[in-house]
Design a binder for these strands. Structure first.
Ligand code: ZN
Ligand code: ZN
Ligand code: ZN
Ligand code: ZN
Lengths: 134, 134
DNA sequence: GATGTAGTTGAAAATTTTTTTCGATTAGGA
DNA sequence: TCCTAATCGAAAAAAATTTTCAACTACATC
């Protein structure tokens, strides 16, 4: 995982200040991927709600954090490695996978300059799919 | 495009009633894909806000409508054909493409039972990319 | 066509989520 | 140590979504 030191440097590099609140949010994010606002908040009760919103905005802007829209409210995660999500519609579990069909085999001629993308698959996780043999 | 008659049948088939409000929302949706709540509402001013929310929920539930999360607020579109979206971060234009890397080449072993997926690409549309040769 | 009823509607109010204000506080350079 | 622009957060405002509940209506049945 990219040390928080590195992130601090990125923040300063952009002319922003490294504050205890920002570091607290980063640590909260480092504890677990794709957390909801409430989850993050409960991990750093000292950080005010407004600051929370602003911090997540700022971190997203400088590319350190990624905001996700997985169906229920917004979620956030550290934008370390590129990956995609599998959302279990049965138990709500969210897991990740690295394989990327977009990077692997480029799309045909879309006449569009792609800078990023997101891919989510919905269905049932291994546990919920139960013992049912494939 | 799947006639609205068909949809009416699907609504009745699920035990729901076909009301003027529901048909009005469907017609509004048929006018244009991926519309925001406001856009849909302006196309059927007679339908109350609460009914609007409930109708979109119901239509999503029976699979007639697809709710999209493309960055700005939620958007809705008729779930006719399978396709994906290209969102221009410069002008905000949203366009579609049929090519589907997930259906084409299945993902590796994910140990996950996929029932649906969504894929969005962000970047600059042809217009915004300007004359810049590839 | 008239009747009964469960499903539906929407105004108002309650909640929840996000943004704006603005005076007090602070990180970090000089 | 000083200074100042950046930041913080309580409070209020605004926006988005949901709940209530009494009146209304689609439609199956008679
Ligand atoms: Zn993730
Ligand atoms: Zn990818
Ligand atoms: Zn679309
Ligand atoms: Zn697809």
């Amino acid at each position: 995982m990219a040390g928080l030191e590195t992130v601090a440097g990125k923040i300063r590099g952009r002319g922003y200040k490294v504050t205890p609140q920002r570091m607290a949010v980063l640590e909260a994010l480092a504890a677990e991927q794709h957390q909801s606002m409430d989850s993050i908040r409960s991990r750093c009760p000292r950080v005010g709600l407004v600051t929370m919103y602003r911090t997540l905005d700022l971190l997203s802007e400088i590319g350190v954090v990624r905001r996700l829209d997985l169906g229920d409210g917004p979620r956030y995660e550290l934008a370390e490695d590129h990956h995609h999500h599998m959302i279990c519609e049965s138990c709500g579990d969210i897991s990740e996978f690295e394989e990327c069909p977009i990077d692997d085999g480029p799309l045909g001629d879309l006449d569009f300059e792609i800078s990023s993308h997101s891919l989510e698959v919905y269905g049932r996780c291994a546990v919920c799919a139960g013992g049912e043999r494939r």
